[in-house]
């Protein structure tokens, strides 16, 4: 069980997860605009030749995971990531990390998130949320686009983590591993 996890709501899920995870590890200066800037999140793409659902391909976000990668690189943070072949080993790994008290970032498919309004549930596989605990059969979820924390049952979370289609998450989880060097640097600067 993760102690004192604080839910932070943001405008975009990837910024939100990185902000929350790093703040939880003591980087108090972290906030969404900073993560977005460090991760070079500003992006726009319009390809009229490429059609999606009858319209041109438009994107206002860089490749999923990019903001993460660049923010962590800028801060010299080791990010541990893992993908899995099957649901059971993915679930076991998550449970183990939660027992160790580590909040874990998860890539999930939006279609299976039961707490979203039906109108928003498309097969979009690059949504990010944080799992910060488990109570019985319910996982405690901090989804950065939601106003408050929510829960998902084990079956629901497994389904979302193994949703299929473009950018299938395959149980993708991540969390910052080593922050020592960065913390030492910050401490030295403060002294």
């Amino acid at each position: 069980m993760v102690k004192d996890f604080k839910h932070i709501q943001t405008a975009h899920c990837e910024n939100g997860v990185i902000t929350s995870l790093l703040r939880h590890r003591g980087l108090d200066f972290m906030n969404e605009p900073l993560a977005f800037g460090m991760g070079a999140g500003l992006f726009y793409l319009h390809v009229p030749i490429l059609k999606f659902n009858g319209g041109p391909a438009i994107s206002f976000r860089s490749m999923p995971g990019g903001i993460f990668k660049r923010t962590c690189k800028a801060l010299n943070i080791d990010l541990e990531r893992k993908k899995f072949k099957d649901e059971l080993s993915a679930q076991k790994f998550l449970d183990k990390k939660l027992e160790e008290g580590i909040p874990v970032g998860c890539q999930v498919g939006v279609y299976h998130l039961t707490y979203f309004p039906k109108e928003y549930r498309f097969h979009f596989n690059a949504h990010n949320l944080i799992v910060y605990g488990k109570e019985g059969d319910n996982y405690l979820i901090s989804d950065p686009v939601m106003e408050t924390v929510t829960t998902l049952t084990t079956a629901e979370l497994n389904k979302a983590r193994f949703s299929q289609g473009m950018l299938a998450p395959r149980g993708h989880v991540y969390y910052p591993k080593k922050l020592e060097m960065l913390m030492r640097l910050l401490l030295e600067k403060q002294l």
Partner: peptide
């Protein structure tokens, strides 16, 4: 909107002093 009774969205806005806040 369909978010009613479920959640609200974060927006970045300028306050009366011209500074950004959510």
């Amino acid at each position: 909107s369909s978010l009613q009774n479920i959640t609200r969205e974060v927006c970045y806005v300028k306050n009366s002093e011209g500074k950004y806040e959510t």
